[in-house]
Write a protein that binds this DNA or RNA. Structure first.
Lengths: 169, 169
DNA sequence: CGTTTCGGTTTACTTTTCGATACCCAGCCC
DNA sequence: GGGCTGGGTATCGAAAAGTAAACCGAAACG
């Protein structure tokens, strides 16, 4: 009997299939970054873009969607607006990443790494991520709190403190 | 002058903004896992679901989309079909994850980790990921090839071998 | 004072994706 | 052969995304 089946064996419900899935950190993160263009906007921020016209030019995405996504990213605290002023121009807003936004890097690195491995251009990647101090390429890895390296196969999922069953209707 | 600006300084083009973005591993990965339900289907596979009816029941997603997503995940080699047979029923297909699918774990762990940090239920996570051998919780971290721990701030992006400028029209 | 530039908003239209439901088919049971 | 079950299709309306263009306000420029 695994950690799931010992939770609720008296009812006829299956803890895996009848659990309440509304409290899921993956789904909640996807509510924010799961829309089209959002992650690509963040990619461009990491690559150095900051202005509305930068994003429009490099992404080629519709202006109305770009405005909507930027507004949402600012509302969520992933980007913040500052003002910049070029000599001879008036001051305008620019978008900079916050620490909350930087914390999305591991997730997006994971997507990058998978794409590099399975869907790469024969020539290789168009952009490389390097450790600034030593110049070596970076990747994401899974570790446990005791710092053992962990393979994906060595992970088990168990019910957590907020585990709930779905209310039956 | 950084690694970008030294690439093409003679033309009037900006290597960050006028580069060819079609060869991007992030965008390519999102073409597969960026659609609605796809990542949630994989989540359920990791949590132990394998049948069509399992996914439908726990996700509550439309059947036609579920069928489309499963077919695509199998085509892409992220899931594979096997057959199972319960006594008294005919044999039916079930979906199991491949090693290519397991390699998406770091990316999805990154989403999970961010959600746990910034959008958590006050009680905590509904599901915990643990290292099977030692029982400690797992997380994703960025390392460089020389195994230094790397903060997101310590990453720099530089043009890679397949870097190209967008062809001007 | 008129023009240009940037960072948007608004409108209008087409296309794609989503969501809900009904329907279909194969095999097992009786 | 009639009903039940599991794994899908087919269909259709609604919502979201894509496309294109016009419009706007402020500030700098001439």
């Amino acid at each position: 009997m695994d950690a799931w089946t010992e939770v609720l064996q008296d009812t006829g419900m299956d803890p895996r299939l009848d659990r309440d899935t509304s409290n899921c950190s993956i789904a909640r993160t996807l509510e924010i970054v799961g829309e089209k263009w959002t992650i690509l906007i963040l990619r461009e921020v990491w690559y150095g873009s900051s202005r509305f016209s930068d994003f429009e030019r490099v992404l080629g995405c519709p202006r109305n969607l770009l405005a909507t996504r930027l507004r949402m990213l600012v509302e969520e605290g992933i980007l913040a607006t500052e003002t910049y002023k070029e000599p001879g121009s008036r001051s305008r807003p620019k978008y900079v990443i916050t620490s909350k936004g930087m914390d999305l890097v591991p997730a997006v690195m994971g997507l990058l790494q998978w794409g590099d491995r399975y869907r790469a251009d024969p020539e290789g990647p168009a952009v490389l991520a390097r450790h600034r101090e030593c110049g070596a390429r970076v990747d994401v890895r899974i570790r446990c709190e005791r710092d053992h390296p962990v393979e994906a196969n060595d992970i088990e999922s168990v019910p957590g403190p907020a585990f709930r069953m779905r209310s039956p209707e």
